[in-house]
Design a protein around this nucleic acid. Sequence first.
DNA 1: CTGAAAGCGCTAACAC
DNA 2: GTGTTAGCGCTTTCAG
Lengths: 349, 349
Amino acid sequence: MATDPTIRVRPVSIREVARESGVSLTTVSLILNKSDQRISEATRRRVLATIDRLGYRPNRLAQGLQNRRSHILAILVPGLKHAFADVYFGELISGIYDEASRLGYKILLEVATAGFVRQRKYIELFDQCFIDGLLFVGAHEQHRFLHDLAARQYPVLIVNNYFAQERLDYVVCDYAAAARLAARHLCGLGHRRIGMIRGAIEVQTAMDARNAFVETCRQLGTAISDDLVADGLYTEEGGGAAAEELLRREPRLTAIFAGNDKMAIGAIRRLHQLGRRVPDDVSVIGCDDIHQAAFVTPPLTTVRTPLYDLGKRSAQCMIDLIRRKVKQCHEILPVELVTRESTAPPPPR
Amino acid sequence: MATDPTIRVRPVSIREVARESGVSLTTVSLILNKSDQRISEATRRRVLATIDRLGYRPNRLAQGLQNRRSHILAILVPGLKHAFADVYFGELISGIYDEASRLGYKILLEVATAGFVRQRKYIELFDQCFIDGLLFVGAHEQHRFLHDLAARQYPVLIVNNYFAQERLDYVVCDYAAAARLAARHLCGLGHRRIGMIRGAIEVQTAMDARNAFVETCRQLGTAISDDLVADGLYTEEGGGAAAEELLRREPRLTAIFAGNDKMAIGAIRRLHQLGRRVPDDVSVIGCDDIHQAAFVTPPLTTVRTPLYDLGKRSAQCMIDLIRRKVKQCHEILPVELVTRESTAPPPPR
DNA sequence: CTGAAAGCGCTAACAC
DNA sequence: GTGTTAGCGCTTTCAG
């Protein structure tokens, strides 16, 4: 008969398993861990049965205290408002979670607020809380504390960005290729007056995309001046403001490439408010292919970055790093064009 | 001089602090915890200084092992694909994170997959991993394992839903009020042929909203048959399909209330594809006021549910529950109408 | 093949 | 006021 479930009972410990199966506590531990040390099949079976019957689960805290490993990974996001409500971060987090979970790791959430950095909480996480690794989603060059961590040899991975100067580990999408796809798509449609809304200047991939976009357009015969590149802050609001600004600088603009879908969606909204039809007057192409991209009006043409898979891959790499199966990790994932209805040939003039 | 930071060094323990400041380990512990036991001001200052100098941080694993408290809360989400990429969950998670963090708790992520339930991982979390509480975001009546947990007196909180039958703790938005606001808004504009896209039938709040909507419309002179209520599965795709179905059943429909903004956005997209203009031909009102709602075309009229604040409140309640400051928690948060451009009077017939 | 014992870092009776 | 000591639950050498 089961114990009364309404009474909060202390979980069964390895000691009880040992007592119940008439062996020492060492034997139980041995069976659970190093099975190389030969335990007689009979004992093993008996102990395993007891474990099953008692519903024993090793206490991770005690294990961690001993092993100095917690099997917990932290996902760090930048100190933005409501960061977890961002689908971009969310896709990455889902990928990381699913893969980490599959490999036996748990996920702890952290936000890189000012206090987090100032009080060196990132060290604390490793030292006192025993996270085994840190995955930084949304990191950029201003996050200098990462060097602190890397210098201490703690496993840290930059998810979907990288630092030009240093050799911190990363997994990233090929944003230069994304920009080239976008440039070829727009130029191929016949656009000659093109603007770009880029992400923040401190994000390396945003700079890569900008450079590749400008360069590819130039090769295809369309010069893009610095005037026609604006910062959209990765947000809908920023994308809208940037679109308006670009149009002010060049009223004859017929196409815009935005560094992510949120900015593209913000741009479309603002263009609509300004009386420009998309794509009839102005084409807009985004980047990422977030789920919503297919449901705005008009549905967004974009470059698909495999965020979920990138998250999974990041988790794999992190765990390989922890287990020292690899010494470093610098990986670049391919992207692809997704054509929908927000791009079209420029209007006849 | 600092130690070479490139060498991964064992974090400083309480023992070293004690040795360095020439006191026993107990004294240090006492200073850090029960300061009631009077330690001379001199010793205290000396020890605190050492702690500061050495950069000592208590090891949470060791503390937890002793106290049987981890200061970690788990957020559980349903086993949907890419659950963390959902802004609805994301807003709640942001709120929970921010408040939990402020109160000294860390956040662990968990997904209620089939395996999670079958293998009773939820028990394991409490037993072996020492989470102090579980916040379930996206729970519904089919999640019967919650009773298991509650029966064991483990702190569990349902975030933004509740179970009609049982008295599990919860914090929830007033979805009945939301539906009444939507009904009054649409009826007030003059609509008489109204459809509803509701969330899943196993979600209590979805049923509350449906009942309140139908009832309020009836009171205002507009009968809504069961025919004009469709399940939109809480997704854009589902919302689109439901909108099409409603229109098939009642081609003269002039307004739709969707149980969340994603379904509303999906409905708008499909209406557009079907050649119905929003709001000229059909008005659409959503629920939640997610950030994107303001950036779709047309901007979405909706009922704002304070998801972020609800997350914060949930974290507070959970922690009060853990600390036994409260015995139970049944809280309902108010909502408000946000009028944008997706609703208008019905077309003249 | 199995067990005794030390110890991971910390807390809290209980002594002095 | 401060220190001694016994665990928390587990892993792992080292004996037998």
